[in-house]
Design a protein around this nucleic acid. Sequence first.
RNA 1: UCCCCGCUAGCUCAAUGGCAGAGCGUUCGGCUGUUAACCGAAAUGUUGGUGGUUCGAGUCCACCGCGGGGAGCCA
Length: 467
Amino acid sequence: MLEPGRYIKDILRQAPGTAVTAHGWVKTRRDSKGVHFVQLNDGSCFQDLQVVIEAGTLAEAVLKQVTTGACIRVEGDLVESPAAGQAVELRARAIHIFGEADPATYPLQKKGHTMEFLREIAHLRVRSNTFGAVFRVRNALSFAIHRFFQERGFLYVHTPIITTSDAEGAGAMFGVTTLDLMNLPRIAQGPQAGQVDFSQDFFGKPAHLTVSGQLEAEIFALAFANVYTFGPTFRAENSNTPRHLAEFWMIEPEMAFCDLAGNMRLAEEFLKYIIQYVMEHCLPDLEFFNKRIDDTVLQTLEHVATSDFAHITYTEAISLLEKAPRTWEFPVYWGADLQSEHERYLTEETFRRPVIVTDYPREIKAFYMRLNDDGRTVRAMDVLAPRIGEIIGGSQREERYDVLRDKIRQQGLDERAYWWYLELRKYGSAPHAGFGLGLERMLMYLTGMKNIRDVIPFPRTPGYAEF
RNA sequence: UCCCCGCUAGCUCAAUGGCAGAGCGUUCGGCUGUUAACCGAAAUGUUGGUGGUUCGAGUCCACCGCGGGGAGCCA
């Protein structure tokens, strides 16, 4: 394995005159009369190591195998590069071929490929410039998220992937079962006769993949004060858009002794922190995105990291939209949910920066959000970002037992299914709040990538679960 | 799931119902150290699938599949 100091990113920082050995995959090769240039990359950084092979240095048979896609080891001397583009280059003395790649069939040749094509070769696309940058940024982002919360004393909690509380209510869920689907056990008699007998299933009742760790995170917040989850989440919605996945990663902080104002402060501080971290640690990758994917990325990130987010209430947003000099496809009135066109207008045209919209009508938000004194709005917040829409959704939670119980009843939910959630309000309840951030949505924002399927290693969407 | 658009060489795309094309990549040759190198030449096709209309279908029609954009749902 590569020890620290032997990655290409380390080799590129070493002084000329050093003897080094580099490992990696050939990105491209250019031939001149007496010299060959090989771009070598091991994924450790955006920049390739330029390997220079003087004619006659290597056996013709070896040289012939140094083709795009091949995996090689190069031993040689690091020297100052006489040409622009790189400070140092590796003058090869010997090359070992680990694995060749037939140029006639290797699909990742040096040319522009569409994202759609690269998605079909997800086992190879990670070696491309774009996806190398995407996954380095994804890695840095993940680390920055942990660091942000750890620095603030948040406890990292692992909420369950499999859940039997079909009560989360956040969209369609994937079933989890060991029953034989071709031969389902049925209840023989009684009022439920003919229905599937889940008492024979693995968990003795219907089970699903989680759609959110929030309710369980609340349990931990009421013992550890500040906690966060960071894990996979599953939605069986038939959503076919560039912004939805059936399997995605979500970060959900939950804070006791916190109201909506504190929640908003944390969300803004959090977004700025992770943006700054990625800008500090992945600048060459971001510069590439800015050059080839979206030429507004760097400017937008700098702007967001340094400017204050706009804050408006839902009621103010409706009033703004009603006065907007344009016609809406979906009508704007108090009580209507904000549509994509409305969110985009607010964040892209009115404010031109992230906007936090708060205090939505109770009817269009989840039962667990804290009721305001006006009795018609709840302490919800959505952070809207230009181009991708809602990036964070959160709220102050209803901590009052009676109010929560009434809201559960009013929404026609079975309060017995929420027995432990209600008990949290009975024993040592506290004001608390939290939010959810979609990791992939954040990555789209950071990279300018247009399709969420291109910021996750192996996307799962309706009708697609390859690799 | 709904609306719109698309599917032709490895990739990106042309082709009035009448001989299947180009650029890039690949291969070969040239070029004084290149940077998405450059110059010249060559090879490369079950036109997404199944039916249908027609003397004749890449082109028109039907159904199916896949992809993209927009919408809904949301993170």
